[in-house]
Design a protein around this nucleic acid. Structure first.
Length: 287
DNA sequence: GACCAGGTAGCAA
DNA sequence: TTGCTACATGGT
């Protein structure tokens, strides 16, 4: 086992590991028995903990580059936060969660995770993703235990709808198998999507089954490094009605454009802060 | 028992 | 195009 750490001199600004990996951007990190967070990246097992913005890691390989990408450590967070709009709810979210970073997770697991997220609470999405890993993922031996990575597209394409319903996926089960088939067969080229202009990329992702504009936004924001997406979920829809009523449009595309114009140069970042703030009780005291 | 959770597909008009 | 409605499951 290798060990190491990343200190404040190696990335700019604050970092809050727990909020970042449990706030519903990613479902690929699980807490260990001793309170670290573990994920699998290819053949690499990575465990991290954080205290006062310093990250300690242990792994079977040097995970520095992977951590930088996946945990958003290369972002200039102070500058991003400085550019947040002055609306009180955004500023309140910033005060409360400074250190929350937008992740860039592998696209395929992110796509499946957010297909599963429809009408689901965050803890249950985590459970479903974990169930897929345990039932279909590659097994890796690590420190005397077996850890499971995320299954490949061809593996989930070969699973049956009935099997996936057994795991508690409900009506999302066929979405998973059909999307896996589409990807396996090359019906959508994710590499091409990555280089598209934002709205075209969002549209392209809806080619998958179980992927509408909201899920597509999450995949672009948390899996493909896009800055623009503002996923319009139930929490943000409510926030728009309450705090940005003039941005409420007649369609997803219209509201998306309007709210993006109001959230500053990094709309996705502002959205994720507000989402986390509201979902954890922020804003309840306000009129 | 309603109601809700990081919505979408399918279908009617 | 836009506007319903059904859809699994578990927690409050």
């Amino acid at each position: 086992m290798e060990r190491g750490h990343l200190s404040a001199s190696e990335f700019r600004g604050p970092f809050d590991l727990e909020t970042t990996v449990t706030s519903g951007q990613t479902f690929l990190w699980r807490e260990t028995e001793d309170g670290w967070y573990r994920t699998v990246d290819g053949d690499t097992i990575i465990e991290v903990t954080e205290s006062d913005g310093v990250i300690d890691w242990r792994s079977n390989a040097d995970p520095t580059e992977v951590l930088n990408r996946r945990l958003g450590l290369s972002a200039d967070l102070p500058q991003i936060l400085e550019a947040f709009p002055s609306e009180p709810v955004v500023q309140a979210a910033k005060e409360r969660y400074a250190g929350l970073r937008i992740v860039t997770e592998p696209v395929w697991p992110t796509l499946i995770s957010f297909i599963l997220s429809a009408q689901m609470r965050i803890d249950r999405i985590h459970e479903m993703v974990t169930a897929l890993r345990k039932s279909y993922g590659p097994a890796i031996e690590w420190q005397g235990r077996t850890v499971y990575g995320f299954p490949q597209p061809e593996t989930l394409a070969a699973a049956t709808e009935a099997e996936l319903r057994e795991l508690g996926l409900g009506y999302r089960a066929p979405y998973v198998t059909e999307t896996a088939e589409l990807l396996r067969d090359g019906a959508v080229d994710l590499k091409a999507v990555r280089s598209m202009e934002y709205e075209a990329a969002r549209e392209a992702l809806t080619e998958f089954v179980g992927v509408g504009p909201k899920v597509a936004d999450c995949v672009l924001l948390f899996g493909m490094d896009f800055d623009e997406p503002v996923p319009l979920d139930t929490w943000i829809q409510t926030a728009i009605e309450e705090y940005f009523p003039e941005a409420a449009g007649d369609s997803y595309a219209e509201t998306s454009r309007a709210i993006r114009d109001r959230l500053g140069p990094r709309p996705g970042y502002a959205q994720t802060y507000v989402f986390t703030h509201l979902r954890t009780g922020g804003g309840e005291q306000e009129e």
